[in-house]
Design a protein around this nucleic acid. Structure first.
Length: 497
RNA sequence: GAGCCGUUAGCUCAGCCGGUAGAGCAUCUGACUUUUAAUCAGAGGGUCGGGAGUUCGAACCUCCCACGGCUCACCA
């Protein structure tokens, strides 16, 4: 309790004594701030006066400039700010007193005339103030906003109140996801589905899961690490085109690009190959970019990214050849590949095969050079255990990743639909798990059974939504695009084990 | 996980070589009928993240703890 809170508590009690509920009631508005600006900003002072229009607004008072028997304040609603002008001789002594005693942070309803001041600012000249809600704590600095990153994440509401760029970013996040949904529903004729978050075993990716317990069944359950396996079951079930935008959970480290829970989009479309999925992916990214820009161009970390042009499409081997001159199309032995790696200072592990070395070349020399949206396809089979081999060249798979600004934003392939092959790959994973790799998956018998009823050839796609939002809103941390990022509790006193 | 840095008033930040804690905004009192980071005059506000140590004396030095940030490796 500090002096400011004491003062505000006193003012709250003062309101009660005056018969005013400090935590107010419903209030009908006729205008939002943005509507006022859109409708009247272009008119001059006299034109607005001639119109003689009235407005009723409501919001949080975020700035106040008193001037004796008259005062100005800025009222903020979800669409922006609008100035109010309160005159004692207009609203009357009692009503002016309420305004005079109200603090920055309080919610007010204001009825008045729409005017422009001598300085040319659109303003509501109050005829009556309605007190709506008391703020018992002071807001962050009106000019600097809330800068403390920890506090921004822990008390997001304060960040949203005082940092408009953060508020806008979360509005954009919603628009982006909404545009993606609309594209998949309307352009791709997909069905959006919801699949379980609680899994009997964590599959569909390599990651450590969170484990929880169900009391009634007395079994451990896993929070999902991917959407993949349930969605493929729906492809078996004949839904043909499905997608889910959902939260997945990975019990791993956290940093600027990783939050323990994050939002993934996965889509599966029957009878698509990976080239069709490229078209789909390009459509998704263009729809997302168009949701938050006029021209499909965004600036990310100082670089302009253009989503409006067709995305480049390159085979991984061609991309490496362009940058380094090394041609991995040639058939080669592992010894020959190692020699090339040595010549180019590329490190490798003893168990690596040619495909691993090709991938290492890509990561070392090519990845960072890709700025504009580019599909890299044809990943080596050794690094793509879930993708189908290419029919013409079985060294490579029908897989692609979308790279933008040196970072991967989507991963897709023609899905494995051979239940016998799938069982073998699961068994290999299970062996790894027994050997101590707690990121390896177990055997999902139920999934194999589903596949054995016949899954059509299918193109699958996964996109990390949070990172896409980061890219489109120029955010430097994943925590800037997740409203309530995972934080260690401030009071770290955990119950004894 | 490793390294580096940070934590001072409600917020944003200063604080030198260890010598009894500072500014701006915000708050309070007063003045002010078109201000807009309003202005002017005055005032109040601090467990300097927590704990221990060194010292005559610690925001400052040492150690431990907590939380956070950044960089680096792995994962989306």
């Amino acid at each position: 309790m500090n002096d400011q809170m004491r003062v505000r508590l006193d003012k709250m009690n003062e309101l009660r004594q005056e018969g005013i509920d400090p935590f107010g009631h419903a209030f009908k508005r006729t205008y939002l701030a943005k509507q006022l600006h859109a409708e009247f900003n272009d008119l001059d002072k006299e034109a607005i006066e001639d119109l003689g229009k009235k407005a009723i607004i409501a919001g949080r008072m975020v700035a106040k400039r008193g001037k004796g028997k008259v005062g100005f304040a800025d009222i903020m609603d979800r669409t922006g700010r609008i100035q109010i002008y309160v005159r004692k001789d207009v609203v009357g002594e009692e009503n002016y007193h309420i305004f005079k005693r109200s603090d920055i942070g309080d919610h007010l309803g204001v009825e008045g005339d729409i005017i422009k001041t001598d300085m040319g600012e659109l303003t509501i000249r109050a005829t009556h103030i309605t007190f709506l809600s008391k703020a018992l704590r002071p807001l962050p600095d009106k000019f600097h906003g809330l800068q403390n990153k920890e506090q921004k994440y822990r008390q997001r509401y304060l960040d949203l109140i005082s940092n408009p760029e953060s508020f806008d970013r979360f509005q954009k996040r919603t628009k982006i996801i909404s545009a993606i949904r609309s594209y998949l529903n309307n352009e791709m004729d997909c069905t959006e589905v919801e699949t379980p978050v609680l899994h009997n075993q964590a599959g569909g990716a390599s990651a450590r899961p969170f484990i929880t317990h169900h009391n009634a069944l007395n079994i451990d359950l896993y929070l999902r690490i991917a959407l993949e396996l349930p969605l493929k079951r729906l492809i078996v079930g004949g839904m043909e085109r499905v997608y889910e935008i959902g939260r997945v959970f990975r019990n791993e480290g956290m940093d600027q690009d990783h939050n323990p829970e994050f939002t993934e989009l996965e889509s599966y479309i029957a009878y698509f190959d990976f080239k069709d999925v490229m078209d789909e992916t390009e459509g998704i990214f263009k729809a997302a970019a168009n949701a938050v820009t006029d021209d499909g161009k965004v600036t990310y970390e100082g670089e302009e990214i253009d989503f409006s042009k067709p995305f480049a499409r390159k085979h991984m081997v061609d991309a490496i050849k362009e940058v380094t001159g090394v041609d991995f199309w040639k058939e080669m032995t592992i010894d020959e590949a190692r020699k090339i790696a040595d010549d180019h200072d590329v490190q490798y592990e003893p168990y690596w095969k040619v495909g691993h070395i090709i991938n290492a070349f890509f990561e070392k020399f090519v990845e960072d050079t890709i700025k504009q949206p580019t599909f890299i396809y044809g990943h080596p089979v050794e690094i793509s255990p879930l993708a189908k081999k290419n029919a013409e060249d079985p060294r490579f798979t029908d897989r692609f990743e979308l790279y933008i600004s040196g970072t991967e934003y989507g991963n897709a392939f023609t899905e494995l639909n051979d239940p016998i092959d799938q069982r073998e790959r699961f068994e290999a994973q299970a062996a790894e798990k027994d050997a101590g790799n707690d990121e390896a998956q177990g055997i999902d018998e139920d999934f194999i059974e589903a596949l054995s009823y016949g899954m059509p050839p299918t193109g699958g796609l996964g996109i990390g939504i949070d990172r896409l939002v980061m890219l489109l809103t120029d955010a430097e941390s994943i925590r800037d695009v997740i409203l309530f990022p995972t934080m260690r509790p401030e009071d770290n006193s955990q119950p004894e084990e």
